[in-house]
Design a binder for these strands. Structure first.
Lengths: 333, 333
DNA sequence: CAGCGGGCCGAAAAGGTTTTCATAAACGTC
DNA sequence: GACGTTTATGAAAACCTTTTCGGCCCGCTG
């Protein structure tokens, strides 16, 4: 397979490159018969237009950069998939860059992307906390998951407060009244926000947290186990546990199981993240909150497209999360 | 931030574009003082060369395509990271395309990538089974994880047979003699290969599988649990279980725990994949086999670079896996 | 029949860079 | 002072495509 250029096509079809171009691009000022000849020539040579050259004259490369901080983390991927999906592959291709959480590497990638004349940039953070703005750039940028610290930028984030509310709301609807909250690192805004949503929703029903306070700790199964043991000792009458992540929820379930406490009949458990390998395979399968990240990625792509078409936006947009009901929660009978 | 061209830089420095180009690219035939002037002008305008234009004349776009079949799957990501890492970001950027296992979409992406004049292609499959070759293309291709069915292509795969051997070898060294193997879907070559390696290694010590045969099933915790229950009923004297994946291993551990069978003192358990969220958080943490996928990705990038520089390769290269020792295995005392 | 408008087509410029080749200047040698 | 050499610079072509604009031919109108 070689590399045919438009010149070759034109020559084979017996026309000029100008008409060949117009014929292939569906411009009207070319006779049907001529167009036909050109199209056939193009097929015969399996011609594919050089996007670099096109980009040079149209001043649009048809590419965007996706700058992520941690690829291995599970949050970037769905966003990335949503974004990749929303840009039709024939219209726009995405450059993937993983900065590995390193500011130097990020600068590096940024330079490279601008040199490649990307039409726009999506920046997705590793955790939902505010991150430094990239500053003024010659192309539009949208921040996803982790908002920028500059309100002049456009940031798209998930509603963690709402997620906390939603979890508690569900538990209350299940008739639970003694609800505890075990969650991760208090240094994460995600942990704080979810906890705040939970407390607020409890207060609306005149309730407080079982166990007296939020159990902050780490984002791990081990912490889920440890906290649950302590909780059971201190507050054995607990009838529901809201875990700040599915990992923690797995630890919670594990200890409940070990203690022969039935889930959901005696204690209901709800997780967070809908990380399917954890939530779907647990015993029983875990009710949890889904962050809708793929949707977030799609919206990011749309907003970016709009900005590239001259309709910029700014501020922080918050997107709702949703409840995934499985078997670890059920109404008290 | 605007967009300075080389012309602007040249004008500001009071030279021609030709010398400006040479100055910035470190060509020798330019006076030090002149170079200095040009460099300063470039900085002042924060000039960044248009890679599209460069690619047009050098006939190298400095980009490669990464065509994956399932992004959400956990196997593509490490490979992708390794590859992205091996191409220095300033040299080569990678276009990410997820075909979602759909042949049509793959064709689509392929056309787009070729149109973008990528210098090469890495194709990473969703599962280690042989996949269809893309056929003859104008750029070099390397297949990673899933080998191509065409021996004229270059494929890079992990050594599943060796992985099976390694797992059993470790268990034997721990003094275990009654070893069972519970694994996933027999339709996966990965399952077959790992089982084969296991059986071979056992035979070398004159052993057979405890439980009489390989327990094929599904790649899920639930199957791990179910199979373990059946196994314990049939062969209660088992002293080690080799699970075909970490998910399965989690199910195995779960049932052993439930049955109050101590791990590793009475039964040792080894997993496969080193999926850290599962293997690292289990009780006890899981000894397992790591596929070294990031390394595979790096090698893929290297082989591709070599091919782009005119040193093509063909055939299937198999890469060793490695044992990750945690606490679910230990010598019998 | 002159003039005119419309339909098709091609020549040429543009986009930003690299590279080749010619030119100019400076220098050293006899 | 003439000539060959080296060194530094610039003009122009090339990469591939799109788009503008001018030209040609045709048929139609007056």
């Amino acid at each position: 397979m070689s590399r045919a250029t438009l010149r070759d096509v034109a020559k084979l079809a017996g026309v000029s490159v100008a008409t060949a171009s117009k014929a292939l691009n569906g411009q009207p000022q070319v006779r049907a018969q001529t167009r036909e000849r050109v199209v056939r020539a193009a097929e015969q040579l399996s011609f594919s237009p050089n996007t670099l050259a096109q980009g040079l004259i149209t001043q649009r490369s048809g590419t965007v950069g996706l700058l992520t901080s941690d690829l291995e983390g599970r949050f970037s991927i769905p966003i990335l998939m949503g974004a990749e999906d929303a840009f039709g592959s024939d219209q726009t291709s995405v450059f993937l860059c993983d900065a590995r959480g390193d500011a130097i590497r990020e600068k590096h990638h940024l330079r490279a992307l601008l040199s490649r004349r990307v039409d726009g940039l999506i920046v997705v953070g590793a955790r939902p906390d505010t991150r430094l703005s990239l500053g003024e750039l010659p192309v539009p940028v949208v921040y996803a998951y982790a908002p920028s610290d500059d309100p002049a930028d456009l940031s798209l984030v998930t509603d963690n407060v709402g997620g906390g509310r939603l979890a508690i709301d569900h538990l209350i609807r299940c008739g639970r009244r003694r609800i505890a909250h075990i969650t991760g690192d208090p240094g994460y805004s995600a942990a704080q926000d979810r906890a705040r949503g939970a407390v607020e929703r409890l207060a609306e029903d005149g309730l407080g947290l079982a166990g007296g306070e939020v159990w902050f700790g780490m984002w791990s199964e081990a912490w889920g186990r440890g906290a649950t043991r302590m909780l059971l000792e201190r507050t054995p009458e607990v009838d529901a546990i809201f875990a700040g992540s599915d990992e923690i929820a797995r630890g919670v379930l594990d200890v409940l199981h070990e203690e022969r406490i039935e889930v959901p009949s005696r204690v209901a458990v709800i997780g967070f993240d809908n990380w399917s390998v954890l939530a779907g395979n647990s015993r029983p399968p875990l009710t949890t909150i889904d962050l809708n990240l793929e949707h977030l990625g799609r919206i990011a792509a749309q907003r970016l497209s709009a900005a590239m078409d001259g309709e910029p936006a700014a501020g922080v947009e918050t997107f709702p999360v949703r409840l995934i009901t499985r078997e670890s929660t059920a109404p008290l009978r």
